[in-house]
């Protein structure tokens, strides 16, 4: 078992609860033990970095300090939310590079900076780099052969690369490799890292609907059955704005948007209930039916699989 400090972030307590449920269910199957950081607080998200540099650093630094204080001494934090991951990475890097900022943040925290040895890691980074794609493939009991999957990375997992660094900022591959490990086919498509405007989803609906429609349209043109993501803002935005996006283009996209953990969980034999598919706005039922049909066809053909 690899032990990680776990920083869920605020979204995973609410609109992204499927991500939390599916990750907690999947983790033991992949040899991961998650120990939630005691009394963690909000990373500050866009609202902090967009309005106060020092506030953004201090809010994130509080959580890196708490991770350093964890008994057991896991040095790596698994951060499933792309936004939280990005904020923790930026904060670690800026505080490591600038002693003036470090003392400013210590004064804002009213506390010493103790997070220098702590590393925040994104979920695809952990699954590929630590667990390994072979171990993921070995945990698969229900191969998803025949399913076409568009991996959508968005912004915060891959940009800026000097802080994130585990994947290419223009043509990332990490989630595609995980998709391949399930037996599904990752589609080649042009919108992997196009911004969906998630941060403006509440304030500028029409603008965002256009961005969402572009992304959904590109995934559909590539023949995708489903989009997978590792970002709560992207998932919420592509799911909740899909109706409005369809209206602007006179179409019904009908593209379910899953967390990568939900797709992996499905392939690893976790039940639909434990993966929380019922809480999506765009119905996942047709996708689950397709997975069942593909499984039956494979069995009828006498192929391997369970």
């Amino acid at each position: 078992m690899r032990v990680y400090s776990y920083y869920p972030g605020c979204s995973l307590e609410g609109t992204a609860k499927e991500y939390d449920y599916s990750l907690r269910a999947l983790a033991p199957l992949l040899g991961m033990q998650l120990v939630e950081i005691h009394d963690w607080s909000c990373c500050g998200s866009s609202a902090a970095h967009a309005t106060s540099h020092r506030l953004a650093l201090a809010l994130a630094a509080r959580n890196l300090n708490l991770a350093a204080d964890m008994p057991g001494g896991a040095r790596d934090i698994l951060v499933p939310c792309a936004m939280c991951y990005n904020r923790l990475k930026v904060t670690s890097a800026e505080l490591a590079a600038d002693s003036g900022l470090r003392s400013a943040v210590e004064s804002d925290l009213g506390d010493k900076w103790r997070g220098a040895a702590i590393t925040a890691k994104a979920l695809p980074e952990v699954l590929l780099g630590d667990i390994g794609v072979d171990a993921v493939a070995q945990a698969v009991v229900q191969p998803l052969e025949g399913l076409r999957v568009a991996s959508y990375y968005g912004c915060l997992l891959v940009r800026p690369p000097e802080y994130t660094g585990f994947d290419d900022p223009e043509s990332p591959k990490s989630m595609d490799e995980l998709v391949r490990a399930t037996g599904a086919t990752p589609v080649d498509w042009p919108h992997k890292v196009e911004c969906c405007g998630g941060g403006l989803s509440i304030t500028n609906r029409e603008l965002v609907a256009g961005l969402v429609a572009d992304i959904l349209g590109a995934a559909r043109d590539a023949g995708a059955d489903v989009i997978v993501t590792a970002c709560p803002m992207c998932q919420a935005n592509l799911d909740t704005r899909q109706g409005l996006a369809g209206k602007t283009r006179g179409t019904d996209f009908g593209l379910p948007v899953l967390y990568i953990t939900q797709l992996l969980g499905l392939a690893c034999g976790l039940s639909a209930a434990s993966l929380s598919f019922q809480s999506h706005l765009v119905s996942v039922a047709p996708l689950l039916e397709k997975v069942r049909q593909l499984g039956r066809a494979r069995q009828a053909a006498g192929g391997e699989g369970c």
């Binding site: 605020c10 609109t15 609202a47 500028n204």
Partner: peptide, 21 residues
């Protein structure tokens, strides 16, 4: 609206420590 969104977000974090959506 965007300024109001950021302000509301931070006010909730300041009072509760986490964001209550």
């Amino acid at each position: 609206r965007i300024a109001a969104f950021y302000g509301s977000f931070l006010d909730l974090v300041r009072s509760g420590g986490r964001l209550h959506e």
